[in-house]
Design a protein around this nucleic acid. Structure first.
Lengths: 233, 233
DNA sequence: TCAAGCTAAATTGTCGACAATTCGACTTAG
DNA sequence: CTAAGTCGAATTGTCGACAATTTAGCTTGA
């Protein structure tokens, strides 16, 4: 018998961390909004103890800022932080691509080619480019990162930076990188990895991410960012 | 009037975080040892609430591991994690050196040359190579990181990874990189930065860190690491 | 009219106690 | 003698309440 509806984590604090992370990323908690501990505790039906532990974790993830005796606020997005984040990503995922070229198995390479073929098919047939672009892109990058076999690298990229990156993508959802262009770049990266050309793989991955950053920057300059509202005033 | 003896942080949790971080890095809390919440709370004269918040932060820093309903343990060091950490450092400090070459001011360059001159003088005159090697090295790297002006990069390197790196250095204190060799490499890196050669600066910084990692690896293979003891059994 | 000071309400930080789970020692059956 | 089971002590997770600080509004004086 499976429980799917109610994902019960081992501890309330972990549970809250997941939920709050989702709420921040999805915009339920608007950008820059104040976080009231009594209010959140009542909303989730828990005491402030585990809630505060969750907030400490959210702060470590860079999703909120906390000030002593004042409280917590959801972070605000700005171009500077966006570019900083993507530069960091460029360095780390570039290294991940290099390591992947050295360490990936032939089977994983084959799976990645299949993944890109599926992605291509989606783009050719389907009109729903949004889905293919979003999840196909994410999946490809995550697999490269995993293939690096570097636990620290994997942790920083998939735990610490992941939520932040998703936030920026969400708030710049309108103008997104051309999925066909992205796919071409993915193929080039994968070719380099398959050929065990670490230098080239790193170079291509860096360019790929740098290009994405440039596009996101343009998107942020057009859309004024500071309009994430879903909660009650 | 200044208070220096008693550094009183705004909140007990922050205070505890600093103290516990120091205890882990300095080996007061031995590697792999269990952390008892009641015992620590009594030792510091605080309740378990702020202590637990501090432990959450320590976990985010990668200094301890926590398991639900079981408790917290100080991490253990191993060669795999050491190499992973230094590979990550290589990618990030390499990028920092590249950015520094683009963004650093002439005055900062001059200060860095002065720093290296001081370091050189220490090595020529003084027998206390340990000090010069340790702090001179740290200072140089920190300044390059700061010169990158990338807040995210600075945060990960100086907050998240710093404690871990210091731990590895402490437990492999015996055989440490040749300080004269390190100084030569620092000078080469600084020359590249001063000449605004970002590519070269990144390359040299990467080699420099990679070399340090190789030496630390050898040190760990000789010294058996698992002998960090200072507390009571 | 505006700035400074004061008061009260609300929020954050901290504490001690209770509930739930784990771990160890002991017992007991095979 | 070993292995499974049981019971109790200890530890972790959670809660509600109190203390300390901040914040907002009001008052007061220049």
């Amino acid at each position: 018998m499976e429980k799917v509806t109610q994902i019960k984590s081992a501890t309330l604090s972990d549970d809250l961390t997941q939920r709050l992370t989702a709420e921040v990323v999805e915009g339920v908690l608007p950008l820059g909004s104040k976080i009231s501990e009594p209010e959140l505790a009542k909303r989730y039906g828990v005491s402030r103890g585990p809630l505060r532990e969750a907030l400490v974790k959210l702060e470590a993830l860079g999703l909120i800022t906390r000030t002593a005796n004042v409280g917590a606020r959801v972070i605000e997005l700005n171009i500077e932080d966006l570019l900083d984040t993507y530069t960091l990503r460029e360095a780390m995922e570039g290294m991940a691509a290099r390591l992947a070229a050295e360490l990936i198995s032939e089977q994983e390479v084959a799976e990645l080619y299949t993944l890109l073929d599926d992605h291509q098919a989606h783009l050719d047939s389907n009109k729903d480019e949004h889905y293919a672009s979003q999840y196909g892109n994410e999946d490809f990058h995550l697999r490269i990162i995993q293939a690096s076999q570097n636990k620290k690298l994997i942790r920083v990229l998939t735990q610490d930076l992941y939520a932040t990156i998703r936030m920026y993508r969400r708030y710049t959802a309108d103008s997104r990188p051309d999925p066909r262009q992205a796919l071409r770049e993915h193929k080039a990266i994968l070719d380099a990895i398959a050929n065990r050309e670490g230098d080239l793989a790193e170079l291509l991955m860096r360019r790929h991410i740098s290009r994405a950053a440039t596009l996101l920057k343009k998107a942020m300059l057009h859309d004024s960012i500071s309009q994430g509202n879903s909660g009650q005033p």
